[in-house]
Amino acid sequence: MGRREVETVFFGGGTPTQLPAADLVRILAAIDESFGLADGVEVTTEANPDSVTLESLQTLHAGGFTRISFGVQSAVPHVLATLERTHDPAGVPQAISWARQAGFEQLSVDLIYGTPGESMDDWRASITQAIALAPDHISAYALIVEQGTAFARKVRRGEVVMPDDDETADKYVLADELFAAAGLDWYELSNWARDDAAQCRHNVLYWHSDDWLGIGPGAHSHVAGERWWNVKHPAAYAQRLAADELPRQDGETIDAATARVEQIMLETRLRSGLDLGVLSAEAQTAVPSLLERGMVTQHENHLVLTQQGRLLADAVVRELVD
């Protein structure tokens, strides 16, 4: 790939802070040595609230980390138990306080809604606690059941019952309205920020289909129109590296038609909207109907989802692609 200056780094896909903070700093230093970190680089790590200490956060910040995203998920113990999360919600404010004390200026909180057994009051309590933490950024995702997991087997056996779509939509609307009232504006379907500077630059990179290099088992990369992914199992990944082989499992070249569809799918999710010039002549004919139904608004030459449109974003994308 050559030496390409790195503008954002994101440690995630699990709980990176299970590793000693000094090891995370060593990895960041190796990235800097291999590629070079840009001035003003954004460096994020995900963390469980119970996986950090004041000392570990001080080590991370001193080592170049600029942003931390806490997996709070819920403020309600029985919901956390269903999600098999280990932290006590009462300890979350302490973790946030430590992060601020360590010098982190950008703090994010991740929430999950739609967990089986979660009431609307439960969800409101989680939103209220998250807002009270005064983060710069909040992500709120509907629970997705991954096939092949123990949780998926419980759903299939009827041991837990997923909420219906209307209830999930109501929870999204409640979150959007309460976040907005607290000064957090949506900039992507599942993400709200206090201002432009608080947006996650790394995730915005994904939504604009820019280049990124994924490191680790199962990580995906996208560089210059090529997409590839690594072997998933950690042991297989380690064996490839020990044999001085690339850990790549497979990949694909993205043709122009696929790139256009992906651009529509991803940029429609953003508050900045989708450039009308990307749409085919046939897809352009769907725009008046979407406007009339209140699914989108038009700002100059961009289509932007309304709140109703955000609830049905996949359906809107299908109309714009067909």
Rank of each mutant, 00 (worst) to 15 (best):
W186F: 05
L174N: 06
G91H: 08
G218I: 00
R157E: 12
G183E: 04
G214F: 05
E177A: 08
D322I: 01
D210Q: 14
K154N: 06
E300C: 01
V76R: 07
G13N: 05
W207Q: 07
L291P: 06
I264P: 08
C200M: 04
G103T: 03
V160D: 13
H208N: 15
Q307K: 07
F65T: 01
L241F: 01
P77A: 12
H302S: 05
L107H: 04
W228Q: 06
I131M: 10
D164A: 06
A30H: 09
P116F: 10
A193N: 11
A180Q: 07
S34Q: 08
T53Y: 04
A29R: 14
D196G: 12
L19K: 05
Y172H: 12
A152W: 15
L279W: 06
V223M: 13
P89T: 10
H87K: 07
V317I: 15
Q106A: 09
R271C: 04
D136Q: 15
G2N: 09
T45V: 08
P288D: 11
L246D: 13
K232W: 03
E262Y: 06
A281W: 03
V52P: 05
I127H: 08
R124E: 13
A283K: 03
E292Y: 11
V25L: 05
N191E: 05
D110V: 01
T15E: 10
L205N: 12
T66S: 12
I264K: 15
S280W: 03
R201K: 15
T8G: 04
I264D: 15
E226N: 12
T45M: 08
A242R: 11
D32S: 07
V278P: 12
Y172G: 02
P20N: 08
P163D: 08
A283L: 06
V155E: 09
Q73H: 14
L303M: 11
T86F: 06
R248W: 01
L80Q: 07
L111P: 13
A99Y: 01
A152L: 11
G13M: 04
G158E: 12
S221G: 12
D23Q: 13
M120Y: 06
S34W: 15
L320V: 00
Q101C: 14
I68A: 03
G63H: 04
A140Y: 05
H87R: 08
R310T: 00
N230F: 01
W98P: 14
V278Y: 11
D32T: 01
E118P: 15
V72G: 06
A283S: 09
R227L: 02
R4H: 14
Y172S: 03
V25C: 10
Q73W: 14
